[in-house]
Design a protein around this nucleic acid. Structure first.
Length: 297
DNA sequence: TAAGCGTGGAT
DNA sequence: TATCCAAGCTT
């Protein structure tokens, strides 16, 4: 093996592609014939939510709203209700708004262009690149948490990527992307899969890794993370938990809910009031009549 | 830029 | 049990 960085990157890509050909999971949104819209829905649901929790809601969602226009025609509150317990319900609202934008501004067709995708509500740098790559076979730098971790280790020699993405990191990732669009798209999904199945955060399975002999982190002896501490999120007693409890009550009711009923879901009044106001500000909750609240119509 | 935003499974 | 982590986006 040469020491030339470009040759090393090429070797990494070849190994990962070969590994993916054997070990890829059979995820429904990867099957041939999956519509761009179905890919969009999967990407929204997968933002910070594990694959196994997305499978069934994804299937049910597309069964009900097979096109952007179908979702756009539904009340936003129905999208929030159907989102169920996937978490971060603002994603449901943004997906609905994205469906409206696609319907009104793109003739009902998911745009293939990265810039157009980026302009949609709830679509950021990662999702825009992912949709362009997975749904349309475009050559993109698809940089999610999995890819960032793989490259931090293989290329950077450290256990974890830094907290924030830098221009230099994107450039380093871009250097791995093969020139042919179809191969680039394959690389994008393959390196993500390696990060999800082998080069995982907690206990990486280096013994079965296809690039173990090319990995800078392994060559350095798996040095522990010496960057700033990665703080946990915390949950009990937070506004997030409160908002979740309030929204769960509204999801379970077909009719507006009296404020008294919410008090049972979250007794602490100051926090309950603050969180209800923030849910209204987000557009996740409306007040159809004084003293009652509901999901948006 | 860093904090806020749900939920549940794994260790 | 407590902590970590999961295909991020927005402000």
């Amino acid at each position: 093996m040469t020491d030339d960085p470009a040759d090393r990157r090429t070797a990494v890509v070849e190994r990962v592609l070969a590994w993916y050909a054997v070990h890829a999971r059979d995820l429904p949104w990867r099957r041939p014939g999956t519509s761009p819209w179905a890919v969009v829905v999967s990407e929204f649901m997968l933002q910070q939510t594990p694959v196994e929790r997305v499978r069934e809601p994804w299937r049910a969602w597309l069964d009900r709203w097979p096109t952007p226009a179908a979702l756009a025609a539904a009340p936003a509150g129905e999208a929030v209700r159907a989102w169920g317990r996937l978490g971060y319900p603002r994603r449901a609202l943004r997906l609905h708004r994205a469906a409206v934008a696609i319907t009104e501004e793109h003739d009902g067709e998911v745009p293939a262009d990265r810039e157009a995708l980026l302009a949609l509500p709830g679509v950021g740098s990662y999702t825009a690149a992912a949709v362009a790559s997975f749904a349309f076979g475009r050559r993109e730098v698809v940089l999610d948490t999995n890819v960032r971790r793989v490259l931090a280790r293989v290329d950077g020699g450290v256990a974890h990527p830094a907290a924030g993405q830098t221009v230099a990191e994107v450039a380093a990732a871009a250097a791995f992307v093969p020139p042919e669009p179809a191969v680039a798209a394959r690389w994008a999904v393959a390196v993500m899969e390696l990060g999800a199945l082998v080069c995982v955060a907690r206990s990486p399975r280096c013994d079965v890794c296809p690039v173990q002999d090319l990995c800078a982190w392994r060559a350095a002896g798996h040095p522990a993370w010496d960057g700033p501490p990665r703080r946990g999120q915390g949950y009990d007693g937070t506004d997030r938990q409160c908002r979740g409890a309030l929204l769960a009550v509204l999801r379970s009711s077909d009719e507006p809910v009296a404020l008294d009923e919410l008090a049972q879901a979250w007794p602490e009044e100051t926090q309950r009031t603050r969180c209800l106001a923030s849910l209204v500000a987000d557009g996740l909750v409306v007040a159809p009549a004084p003293g009652t609240v509901a999901l948006p119509g």
